[in-house]
Amino acid sequence: MPATPTAAREGTTDMPTSYYLILSFVLFLIGTSGVLLRRNALIVLMGIELQLNAGNLALLAFSRQLGDQKGHAFAFVIIALAAAEAAVGLAILVALFRSRQTINLDEASLMKR
């Protein structure tokens, strides 16, 4: 590998960063439209996960572009954050379902029954 400095490492590609950014953008759009349009709270949580992953993809793309690994550390923290968010969000969902027998977000617009 060090003999040919222009060659990519095995398993990596030399696609331009803009391609990855556009992919991240499309992924973020899909996640956002899921969050905004769907009424099932479970699907909304999945949309949030997609948004977080789109952010991670952009961070990693820029990290490679700049040759700086700090983006990787950021993405690591974001994955841990996503795990915490999923745990608490799903717990809230379960509590919501216990108290109202629904996970439709339109029916959960009041603080108290």
């Binding site: 398993g11 990787h72 690591f76």
Partner: peptide, 26 residues
Amino acid sequence: TYATLSAHFLAIIQILVYAGAIMVLF
């Protein structure tokens, strides 16, 4: 996709944490 960006560690973490842990919770 992360692996194609030379982020091999993050690719492994993605599979372990997301596909392995968070999705089981879901």
